[in-house]
């Protein structure tokens, strides 16, 4: 569980997007698990993300016309998973984030914290090795923020899921085992908090 900490404009989000293959690096290369993703085509990147990466965004980015379980299951739809299995796994993921009782609700009927939990469930559902989270607590109040961070910590411990979290909130960074401080596009220092 790694936090990228730094003031805005320090390049932490850009770093995360490069990691996720959403933007190509202008120079150098990105290697994740022996995959040289900086050389992949757009289509290969889509497949790679589907298999190995999960994303959590500051603004949740749920699809407003779908309810919670459909949003979570959508990621599996693209992977060609059958409907029954899809719904079962989506439900399991929602159980992990504690939202089974809200699974028929549309995003607009959920609070910010609940929406973020749905988006965490969506990131979890295809069991990726790495989950990239861009300011997951950025839109949430401090109480909800700590709930979300505790959940992420628990997932990291119990599901052995790697999280890379971008944040400018030192409170959120406290939950992480490693903190990378960034400034003006450069890594300032590493910090091991274990």
């Amino acid at each position: 569980m790694v936090a990228l900490l730094g003031p805005s404009g320090s390049g932490k989000s850009t770093f995360l997007n490069v990691l996720g293959g959403l933007v190509p690096p202008t120079s150098g290369e990105v290697i994740i698990k022996d995959y040289r993703i900086s050389d992949m085509t757009e289509n290969e990147l889509c497949l790679f993300r589907r298999e190995h990466l999960g994303f959590i965004f500051q603004s949740y980015n749920l699809i407003s016309t779908m309810n919670a379980i459909e949003n979570v299951a959508l990621a599996l739809t693209f992977a060609g998973v059958k409907k029954e299995i899809r719904l079962k796994r989506a439900k399991e993921a929602l159980e992990i984030v504690g939202l089974v009782d809200r699974m028929e609700h549309k995003p607009s009927e959920l609070s910010g914290g609940q929406q973020q939990r749905v988006s965490i469930a969506r990131a979890l559902v295809n069991h990726p090795e790495i989950i990239l989270a861009d300011e997951p607590t950025g839109n949430l109040d401090s109480k909800t923020s700590s709930d979300i961070m505790e959940m992420i910590t628990k997932l990291n411990r119990e599901e052995k899921q790697t999280f890379v979290i971008v944040t400018h909130d030192p409170e959120a960074a406290k939950y992480c085992t490693k903190v990378i401080h960034m400034r003006d596009g450069l890594i300032e220092r590493w910090e091991d908090q274990r």
């Binding site: 996720g20 993300r49 589907r50 994303f55 980015n61 699809i63 693209f78 992977a79």
Partner: peptide, 16 residues
């Protein structure tokens, strides 16, 4: 547009 972006990020391929 936003939705298309989300779908691509969570694993929709170009052909999807």
């Amino acid at each position: 547009t936003k939705e298309i972006g989300i779908m691509k990020v969570i694993g929709a391929s170009i052909s999807d």
